[in-house]
Simulated scan of single mutants.
Amino acid sequence: MDRPKVPGPVIALYRPRPSISQGAFFQIFIGAVLVLLPLSTAGEQAWYAHTHYGPVAASAWASPWLYLSLAGAIAWLGIAAVGFVRARRFIAIHEDGLRYASLGGPLRTLVTAISPGVLYWHELTGIATGTTEVASLTGKSTHSHCRTTIYRQGGAPLTLKGSDRGGIQNLPELTTRLKARLYPRLQRRMEARFENNQWIDFGPISIHPKELRIRNKAYPWKQVHKIYIKKGYLLVELEQPVTIHRRPTASKNLSKPVQILIPVSQIPNLELLLKLIEEGVNP
């Protein structure tokens, strides 16, 4: 039985900011410059050469312009295709899931531009968000780029960029709505697994009632000093003894925290990770 194309009533719809490349006037102008201008020049060259030097010269003079017009037609079709795909791009939140178009990898983008994709809430496994600060030469932050990644079962993640990079408008609002719909479902499953002493994965970091694992290396919770977010990174401070040699014949052991940095954009369901650690971990 085929799945329904629309997962329930629509709640919110998000699109990119309209661009000049989507306008009909822009497409006509580009077509005239790339195709009609070389074609008209080819006609003029052919007429002049034919009247003065004969048909052989007319063909020779017009051929380069005809080839240029053909290349322009191919380029114009490519520009028109990009405009079509961008004009079709959207992501909609429905009662029972998501519907999207022109998102994903190159092939998936083209396929969903023609036939929008559908994802139900039970097919989604996580959401990761990240913000990249762009600084000037003086080091002062000028603006930031937002990105949201939606993870799903049995498929590549969907990456959404903010409108400042030609992506979806109001991306923070969209992300908040997605988390409000998805997190309660995920939280119940995660809490049940955690209570049953099972590992829960959050991308490069995994947690267990007895220990923390970062990039396949485990640390007992009593060794974890602090976990917090700073400037787009999740910082994990570990208590680790460090030996500092003061004299050749003497040394002193000091407990110095070691920091591990993980970009928050790589951690799906970050808020649920922190909540489980806060409520369920007893070092």
Rank of each mutant, 00 (worst) to 15 (best):
D2W: 10
K5P: 10
V6R: 09
A12R: 04
R17D: 07
I20A: 08
G23W: 00
F26Y: 09
Q27W: 10
F29L: 10
G31Q: 11
L36H: 03
P38E: 01
T41K: 01
T41E: 04
A46G: 04
W47Q: 05
W47P: 07
A49D: 02
H50R: 07
H52V: 12
V56L: 01
A57N: 03
A62Q: 03
L66S: 05
A71G: 12
I74P: 04
F84D: 01
H94Y: 01
E95R: 07
S102P: 13
L107F: 04
R108Y: 11
L110F: 10
L110K: 12
T112S: 07
Y120D: 06
H122C: 09
T125L: 00
G126T: 07
A128T: 11
G130E: 03
T131Q: 14
T132G: 08
E133W: 14
E133R: 15
A135H: 15
L137E: 14
L137A: 13
T138G: 12
C146Q: 10
G155P: 00
L160R: 08
K161Q: 03
R165C: 08
Q169E: 00
N170I: 09
N170R: 14
P172W: 02
E173V: 15
T175R: 11
L178V: 06
K179W: 07
R181W: 03
R181P: 04
Q187W: 08
M190T: 09
M190A: 14
E195L: 13
E195C: 12
I214R: 05
V224I: 13
K226H: 12
I229F: 15
G232M: 05
L235H: 05
E237C: 06
V242G: 15
V242H: 12
N253L: 15
K256W: 12
L261D: 09
I262W: 07
Q266I: 12
Q266T: 12
Q266H: 11
P268Q: 04
L274Q: 09
L274W: 02
G280V: 00
N282C: 05
N282R: 11
P283E: 07
